[in-house]
Design a protein around this nucleic acid. Structure first.
Lengths: 195, 195, 195, 195
DNA sequence: GATGAATGAGCATTCATTCAT
DNA sequence: CATGAATGAATGCTCATTCAT
């Protein structure tokens, strides 16, 4: 049982999440992460190859968790409307509960550094495929109307992302709950769900 | 007439646009911008206070142009449907024609550095208000349905942003024209435009 | 009987010999030595004060063995010619059989770090004195001609050292046996041994 | 005329020679070289790729000078005896006048770091070939006797190297002039030069 | 004695910015 | 105005050494 190993690994990831979110990846010093975690700088390198590896691991791990969390919820749904509702709710709530991760997602999703983008693309693509599967199924059963899967997914993800982005960077920590219904109404309309 | 001054100012901004887009803001060296512009490193500091100032000026200037370009087009429209169509078309086309700017917009819109965000917020907010004005007018005339102006604007902008993001970071330079109609259809649906 | 203690001490020394020879003293990590010895990093510090101590101990121990091995062979000789032949043969053969030690001797003999040089000087000076004694005796019995003991010793040692150096750093592991006779002939000539 | 460029290049090389000689390559900090040269740390990197590049350049440049200096002197000689005398005198005197270089030659000639060795081998090999050419010519004209060119060269170089090594690391700065004649006598004897 | 995870001092290198020319 | 050589503060990462188990 290498629990302590796993424990410190997660501790560093947590600290890095906070630190990256506060300063941004580039402006955040490794020593800042170490200080937040209450460990020595060198210790970080027992768990991660380098600074970039922290970011990538962070994203894969946490974003992966998010996608794996949503998946079974969607399987439980009976209708496409329910599935879309689940995605919207889960997305907004998860990010609301993981503000720092939400910030990093906002930040690093847009990094043009090709190496970082490549590493990040995995878990994200998985999420995109999940959304597209939901849409594809809805189209087939004629529950929704959408000419182009990819564009449909972009609308859904983009809308949620924009909501999160503004929430994340506004000072007020007001809950996102209030906007859920409005977002849902717009999304339902976009896909012509008969309500 | 400060023409030569203005000319070189724009030259540096153009070079910076290319360089930031290719390497990302942090990884892009000032000397790279100078080389692209065909001038000496030091010359840049005759026109800009520092590296950050280049980024901010770049964004204000170019994003401002974009908003100022859309504004009259919208004023020419008769219906909300036309106005939304104009926004979608103009947004996609402008970014398609200014790929480097599109990349930077993707990047820097998400920078958590508070100083950068503040500087960027100006021209962006102007665009947001433009969109919200269109929506507000549509709601008033009952051309569209939308419970919350801000969320409506987030959906529209977020969707366009997601489309651009994927286009920008995909290797293929395929035109965005093909998706315009699909985006429009979804947007019309979202706002319950009677067609 | 501190046999187990002694055993592991030698094991570390052997591993260090290999490791230093392969990577050089400065570039060789202590953990590399530990891995070669099949022990934990920390264990090394139960036997040696620090990294430098390993090098010094290594040199004293192994070089001391070499000198102690030659001494009785020389005592058995009847003539100065035999004694010089013994030195040349023993030197070349010992180094050939202890390639890693030969490399370290080459390396560390030249270290300018004053502390290391001091520590190394002991066993080496002993060897130098051995050679000088042989020369002194030969001069006295008029078997050889040499104006200056120290210079004579430098010629002999320097020649052997140069042969070893080139052998050690050439990829081919060709035996040194072939050069023994040539070296001897040159040395005999240098000291005007009547043959 | 990029004289200032060349001037500072040599200044750094001079400072590095002193610094490497005093502390050894590995223990010498780049900032130490900069301080000795009276320039900023960063300036060094305008002239050299990295620390290793300084060492290699230093060796190539200075050792190259040495070999180029000896070559014409040897061409002026009439006999092999004169040529060997020239080599011995030039070697001892050059190193005496360039103590720091002599120390570095002693140090780095033995570095096992394969990359450094490779870079160093150039100018050294040139010197070796020069010596071997002299020997080959002497053998052909029957001025000297030597079964094996390479071993002959090793004896000559090794002897000189050993003399320098001891002089360099002894505290006293006594002149090497006193040993020249003794070295020459031994060398002449080794190669059976009829005197 | 043995371990190996943790430490943290130490250092090469980068690059935004300056300023003498 | 323009230059570009020079600056030096800043930081990611290494690795000899320690010490709780």
């Amino acid at each position: 049982m290498r629990r302590p190993r796993e424990e410190k690994y997660q501790l560093i990831l947590d600290s890095a999440t906070e630190a990256f979110a506060e300063y941004g990846y580039f402006s955040c010093k490794v020593s800042k992460i170490a200080k937040l975690a209450g460990i020595a700088d060198g210790t970080i390198y027992l768990y991660f190859k380098n600074k970039e590896d922290i970011l990538i691991s962070l994203f894969s791990e946490r974003m992966g968790q998010f996608v794996q969390g949503i998946r079974p919820e969607i399987l439980d749904c009976q209708t496409t409307q329910q599935r879309l509702t689940t995605i919207v709710r889960a997305h907004l709530r998860y990010m609301q509960e993981n503000r720092s991760l939400a910030i990093i997602a906002q930040l690093e999703l847009r990094q043009s550094d090709p190496f970082i983008r490549e590493a990040i693309s995995g878990p994200l693509r998985e999420y995109f495929e999940l959304i597209e599967d939901v849409l594809a199924q809805g189209i087939e059963t004629e529950e929704i109307v959408c000419q182009d899967l990819k564009v449909g997914r972009q609308l859904l993800f983009g809308a949620l992302d924009a909501v999160i982005n503004e929430w994340v960077f506004s000072k007020q920590l007001s809950p996102l709950d209030g906007v859920e219904d409005t977002v849902l109404e717009l999304i339902h309309g976009a896909f012509r769900i008969k309500t």
